[in-house]
Simulated scan of single mutants.
Amino acid sequence: MKAVAIKEFGGPEGLAVIDIPDPAPARGQVLIASEAIGVGGADVMIRRGALAAYGFRQGHVPGGEVAGTVTSVGDDVDPAWVGRRVWAFTGTGGGYVEQAIASIGEVLPLPATLSAVDAVTLGSSGVVAHFGLTHAHFKSGEAVLVRGAAGSIGIMTVQLAALGGASSVAVTTSSPERGRRLRDLGATHVLDRTGRGGPGDPVGYDVIIDVVAGEEMPSFFDRLNPNGRLVVVGAVGGQPPADFGTGLMAAFQKSMSFATFSAATVTESARRAVRVEQFAAVGRGELRTVVHEILPLEHAVLAHQKMDAGEVFGRIVLIP
């Protein structure tokens, strides 16, 4: 079958379409004929080699989520899964393929109202957004800032904060057009990438959800209200400076908090429950998925070029 692998760490041109043997599900696994594959920020970081210290090697097949139809099951899996439309988390890779393997505990049936494309646009991003806000102890009436709001995680965070009763939802983004689209999704204030706004924009926030990290992250500590919390849920901008904690210590009297969040720290059952509810919420029209573009699997290089260029609003989806 066709797959896309990282032949060389670095730029998108290091990705290559390869042929690999058709997989077979082992005990507790299912085989899925992929209909849609999500392209995420983690895929980009792995491709760049930024996560090589965590064991990722050249030859790795990226991609963490797929949607499609179960075609076979391994031992200890109910055969009734065969023929069902599902969303699946494939782990830290293995998703850029025509046929994907997933553990049954990470497989979720798709409601009839949800397309495969919408499923991979929402599946992982919605969970990170939900638990990122939970990790920040967000509550109704608080002011929220979403840094890097134009990606799929940011878009879901904006919607969930608005639905959760935030007093305001500010966003950082790169253009007025993106700002307009984010307002349509629930943002109340649009700032530039540095967090600068205009008259009438909030000057402080109770919660900042940061999808970017990078060198500029510490400058956002100044935007926190007393007892404010900044939670990093992504690092598409790279690692923050090694001494970033000095900003928190310098503002000791404000009792500010910093944390990171990974969905891997949440139980499988908790992630599953949130996905079930969010999939249903899309069907009810309460949440909206935003697809930037649908591309053939063989065009994964182009997808990553768009990601690197910062052109993406929402999620790019690959189709085998």
Score class of each variant (00 low, 15 high):
residue 148 G to Y: 01
residue 76 D to G: 09
residue 38 G to F: 03
residue 166 A to V: 08
residue 116 A to M: 06
residue 166 A to F: 04
residue 124 S to K: 02
residue 56 F to Q: 06
residue 52 A to G: 09
residue 154 G to D: 09
residue 84 R to D: 01
residue 105 G to R: 13
residue 41 G to W: 00
residue 41 G to I: 03
residue 64 G to L: 11
residue 69 T to F: 02
residue 32 I to W: 05
residue 58 Q to P: 14
residue 169 V to Q: 10
residue 169 V to C: 08
residue 131 F to S: 05
residue 78 D to C: 07
residue 154 G to F: 09
residue 122 L to W: 00
residue 106 E to V: 01
residue 137 H to V: 01
residue 172 T to I: 11
residue 132 G to V: 08
residue 122 L to P: 01
residue 61 V to A: 08
residue 122 L to E: 00
residue 60 H to E: 12
residue 177 E to N: 08
residue 35 E to F: 00
residue 126 G to L: 12
residue 58 Q to W: 00
residue 69 T to D: 01
residue 41 G to A: 14
residue 102 A to M: 08
residue 47 R to N: 12
residue 167 S to H: 04
residue 88 A to K: 05
residue 67 A to D: 02
residue 138 F to P: 05
residue 80 A to R: 12
residue 166 A to D: 05
residue 144 V to Y: 07
residue 93 G to C: 07
residue 43 D to W: 00
residue 91 G to E: 14
residue 159 Q to A: 12
residue 140 S to Q: 14
residue 59 G to W: 03
residue 79 P to D: 08
residue 173 T to L: 09
residue 137 H to F: 03
residue 41 G to H: 02
residue 50 A to Q: 14
residue 166 A to Q: 05
residue 97 V to Y: 04
residue 161 A to W: 09
residue 57 R to M: 13
residue 64 G to E: 10
residue 141 G to P: 08
residue 174 S to N: 14
residue 73 V to W: 02
residue 108 L to E: 09
residue 95 G to W: 02
residue 101 I to S: 01
residue 103 S to K: 08
residue 143 A to K: 14
residue 64 G to A: 12
residue 155 I to S: 03
residue 54 Y to V: 02
residue 136 A to L: 05
residue 50 A to Y: 12
residue 126 G to D: 09
residue 40 G to Y: 11
residue 87 W to N: 10
residue 139 K to I: 04
residue 50 A to H: 10
residue 106 E to G: 02
residue 44 V to E: 11
residue 114 L to I: 15
residue 74 G to F: 09
residue 84 R to H: 09
residue 55 G to L: 07
residue 165 G to V: 06
residue 49 G to V: 10
residue 146 V to I: 15
residue 177 E to K: 08
residue 87 W to M: 13
residue 78 D to Y: 04
residue 120 V to Y: 06
residue 97 V to L: 06
residue 145 L to K: 09
residue 45 M to W: 00
residue 50 A to E: 15
residue 115 S to I: 10
residue 54 Y to W: 09
residue 109 P to V: 05
residue 40 G to A: 15
residue 90 T to S: 03
residue 31 L to Q: 13
residue 172 T to F: 07
residue 103 S to Y: 10
residue 170 A to G: 13
residue 86 V to F: 05
residue 87 W to F: 15
residue 76 D to P: 07
residue 107 V to W: 01
residue 153 I to H: 02
residue 65 E to Y: 03
residue 131 F to Y: 15
residue 119 A to T: 11
residue 53 A to N: 09
residue 129 A to Y: 01
residue 105 G to V: 13
residue 31 L to P: 07
residue 86 V to A: 03
residue 124 S to Q: 14
residue 121 T to M: 06
residue 96 Y to M: 10
residue 127 V to M: 10
residue 49 G to H: 12
residue 77 V to N: 06
residue 128 V to S: 02
residue 166 A to T: 07
residue 60 H to N: 12
residue 111 P to I: 07
residue 110 L to K: 01
residue 101 I to G: 00
residue 162 A to L: 00
residue 101 I to H: 01
residue 139 K to G: 09
residue 54 Y to I: 07
residue 36 A to D: 08
residue 124 S to L: 14
residue 130 H to M: 06
residue 95 G to F: 05
residue 110 L to M: 07
residue 73 V to M: 08
residue 34 S to I: 13
residue 43 D to H: 01
residue 91 G to F: 12
residue 93 G to N: 08
residue 129 A to P: 01
residue 117 V to Y: 04
